[in-house]
C-alpha cells in the first residue's frame, strides 16, 4: 500500500463505492435470484458474522489457516536456507521439489483425507503444502542472491559460519523471503476455503458451501464478502509488519515513498551545482531504479 495522505484515502474509496452502488442499483432492478441487493446481503452478513458465527466458524478457519501458514513459513525458511547454501543438495533434490511444487493442492484432497482423515490436520496439511513453495523458493533465491562481497567481508573478519548464516545471509535474504511469504499468505487464505469444501464440519468456506447447498444465496454472498475482508485485513497486517522489519531495505532502495527527513539527509556534502531540479531527479531515479542485488546500494548515485 502506498503511504497516502487524506486525499488519497478519499480517492481510494471512490471506486469501491461506485461499484457497490452500481451493483445495488442493478440488483434491485434485475431481481435475479443469484444476485440479491446489498441490503439483503448486508442483513445476512450482520446476522452471521456480527458476531454469531465468529467463534464457531471464523475462528476455526483462521486458526487452521494461521497454523498451516506458520508451518509453511518455518519449513520454507529453514529448508530454503539449507538448499540455498548447499549447492549439491539443491541440485539433487531439484526434480523432486519441482514435481511436488507443481501438484495443485486441491488434487491432494483425497490423499490428505486418507492420510490425515477428515479433521483439522488434513486441512492444515493442505494449507501448509500449498503455502510452502513460494516461501521455500524465494528463500533459496534470497540466499543465493546474497552479495558475495558481503560474505567475503564476513569471512575476512573471521565471523564464524553459524553467525554468517544467521546474521548476514538471513537478513540479506529477508526481502526475498518476505516477498515469498506474502504470496504464500494469499495462497493460504485460498486453501483455507478450499480445504473446507470436503470433510469439514465448520469454517467460513464450509458455511458458504452449506448456504449454496441450501440455496441461501444471500448467506453465501455474505460469507464471500467476509472472505474478501479477511484477505484484505491480513494483507494490510502483513504490509505493516514488513515495513517495520524491512525499513532498511525500503530506505536503501528508495522505496520509502514521500520524501522524509531521512531522504533529505541523503545528500550529505554540499554539491557544487546542486539545484532543486537535480535533487528531485535524483530522488525520483532512486525511487524508480531497482536494486541490482538485494541488500546493496547502487553506488552510481553516490558520486
Amino acid at each position: 500500500m502506498i503511504r497516502a495522505r487524506l486525499g488519497d484515502w478519499a480517492l481510494a474509496l471512490v471506486v469501491p463505492l461506485l461499484l457497490l452502488v452500481g451493483y445495488d442499483l442493478w440488483a434491485r432492478g434485475a431481481g435475479d435470484f443469484f444476485f440479491p441487493p446489498l441490503s439483503v446481503i448486508g442483513g445476512n452478513f450482520a446476522d452471521d458474522w456480527l458476531f454469531e458465527r465468529v467463534p464457531t466458524d471464523l475462528l476455526p478457519s483462521l486458526a487452521r489457516m494461521l497454523a498451516g501458514y506458520a508451518i509453511a513459513v518455518a519449513i520454507g525458511v529453514v529448508a530454503g536456507m539449507v538448499l540455498g547454501s548447499l549447492r549439491t543438495l539443491a541440485i539433487a533434490l531439484d526434480p523432486v521439489l519441482q514435481f511436488l511444487r507443481a501438484l495443485p493442492p486441491p488434487t491432494l484432497i483425497p490423499v490428505s483425507l486418507l492420510v490425515f482423515g477428515a479433521g483439522d490436520s488434513a486441512k492444515i496439511f493442505l494449507i501448509a503444502l500449498g503455502a510452502l513453495w513460494p516461501v521455500l523458493l524465494n528463500t533459496v533465491d534470497g540466499v543465493r542472491g546474497v552479495d558475495p562481497t558481503v560474505l567475503d567481508m564476513a569471512r575476512s573478519y573471521r565471523i564464524p559460519a553459524r553467525a554468517r548464516l544467521l546474521r548476514v545471509v538471513l537478513p540479506a535474504a529477508l526481502p526475498r523471503i518476505f516477498a515469498g511469504a506474502r504470496t504464500a499468505l494469499a495462497i493460504a487464505i485460498i486453501l483455507m476455503v478450499v480445504s473446507e469444501l470436503v470433510g469439514a464440519s465448520n469454517g467460513v468456506g464450509h458455511t458458504v458451501q452449506l448456504a449454496q447447498r441450501g440455496f441461501n444465496i444471500p448467506e453465501m454472498w455474505a460469507g464471500t464478502v467476509l472472505l474478501g475482508l479477511v484477505g484484505f485485513a491480513f494483507n494490510a497486517l502483513f504490509v505493516a509488519v514488513e515495513r517495520r522489519a524491512l525499513g532498511w531495505h525500503h530506505g536503501s532502495t528508495g522505496r520509502g515513498g514521500a520524501p522524509t527527513r531521512r531522504t533529505r539527509l541523503r545528500r550529505e556534502r554540499p554539491r557544487p551545482v546542486l539545484t532543486p531540479t537535480r535533487t528531485a531527479v535524483a530522488v525520483e531515479s532512486a525511487a524508480a531504479g531497482p536494486a541490482p542485488t538485494e541488500g546493496s546500494v547502487p553506488d552510481a548515485r553516490r558520486q
Binding site: 500500500m1 434485475a30 435475479d32 435470484f33 443469484f34 444476485f35 506474502r182 499468505l185 494469499a186 495462497i187 487464505i189 485460498i190 476455503v193 478450499v194 469444501l197 468456506g205 458458504v208 458451501q209 449454496q212 453465501m220 460469507g223 464471500t224 464478502v225 472472505l227 474478501g228 475482508l229 479477511v230 484477505g231 484484505f232 491480513f234 494483507n235 494490510a236 504490509v239
Partner: peptide
C-alpha cells in the same frame, strides 16, 4: 499486489461455489 488475497479469496469462493450460475434466472 495489495489486494491479491482479497481478489483471490473472493474468486476462489465465487468460482468454486457459483459454478454455472448465470445472470438471468429463468
Amino acid at each position: 499486489m495489495t489486494t491479491w488475497p482479497r481478489i483471490g479469496a473472493a474468486m476462489a469462493a465465487a468460482a468454486l461455489l457459483i459454478s454455472g450460475c448465470g445472470s438471468d434466472s429463468g
